Simulated assay, not measured.
Amino acid sequence: MISVAVVDAETPGNIGTIARSMKNFGLSELLLVDPPELDPDGEAYGFAGQAREDILPEAREVTFDYLVENYHTVACTATTNEDASNHVRYPAKTPAELADSLTGVNSDTCVVFGRERVGLTNDELARLDELCSIPASADYPVLNLGQAATIVLYELRSVTVERDQHPDELHARADERAVEGLHGEFETFLETIGHPAEKQAKTQRMFRRLLGRAHPTGRETRTLRGLFRRARQRIDRATAESDPGDET
């Protein structure tokens, strides 16, 4: 299932527009992090169209931590200019590429949109699994939040509208608890091998992006955790054997 999250929106009307686009393209779960007040007589419901009947009133307020812990997350950002030296904002898929990568993958995925003026912060982006950016004119690459969400959700229609027609073709991605456990094992592995402390955060982000694109299965996730754990145990034993400690 694909859900949509909006983080710290300022304008209720944008939330209503996003809810309407969700209704258009076959999505139903809307998650709100630090939302403004949504007055049933206000612009959010006025912009929502038929989504005012179900998607908007059933929207859930959650924390950012909840998104990270429970979903395969896709951060939607402004154009990134594909700068490979910026590991926080690279690599980014186009919405069409994102749809292709999610086709046939059975996972709880959440597409995350940020604030109207500044989007998602670098700290927030570093915690999410994938990036999606809309290619736009270099002369004016900034899109309205509601417009950006509509473009992304339109491209995802092949997944959200057609997925139920081909249930046997789904690829079962590992659940988020297992994937986060793998990230924790990798973090410990980096510490064990003495990876430079100043490079550990960047390396962990790169590994998160890699897994985000790969959609590992439960078996693959367990295997990788086991490999990192056994490697760590061998290193610990070799270290202990080479340094037997003080003799009495």
Rank of each mutant, 00 (worst) to 15 (best):
V74W: 00
T77M: 00
T121E: 00
V118K: 14
Y66A: 13
C110K: 00
N24K: 06
C76M: 08
F25S: 07
P95D: 13
N122R: 09
E69N: 15
I2T: 10
A92S: 03
V33W: 06
Y90P: 12
G46I: 02
L38I: 07
F64L: 15
A59Q: 05
L32C: 09
E43W: 05
M22A: 08
P40S: 10
I15A: 04
L31D: 10
N86A: 01
Y71G: 04
A44D: 07
D39P: 11
G49N: 08
T73I: 00
N122Y: 03
F64H: 10
A44Q: 08
P12F: 08
V105R: 12
A78D: 02
P12K: 14
L30C: 04
D34H: 08
A19V: 01
A19L: 07
N122C: 12
G13N: 11
A59W: 04
I18K: 03
P35E: 13
F25T: 06
F47W: 04
E82F: 13
T79L: 14
L27N: 04
L32A: 13
T11Y: 11
A51I: 10
A92D: 03
S107M: 04
S21W: 12
N81D: 15
A5W: 01
S21T: 13
V6G: 08
E53V: 01
D39F: 12
T77H: 03
T79H: 15
Y45V: 12
D8E: 15
R89F: 01
G114Q: 00
S101H: 14
D100T: 05
G46R: 15
S101N: 14
A5D: 02
L67P: 02
T109P: 02
T17I: 15
A9K: 05
G114A: 05
T63L: 04
A51N: 12
C110H: 01
F113H: 05
D41V: 13
L30E: 07
T121K: 12
A78S: 10
G16W: 05
E53T: 11
C110P: 02
V112C: 05
V112R: 06
S3N: 14
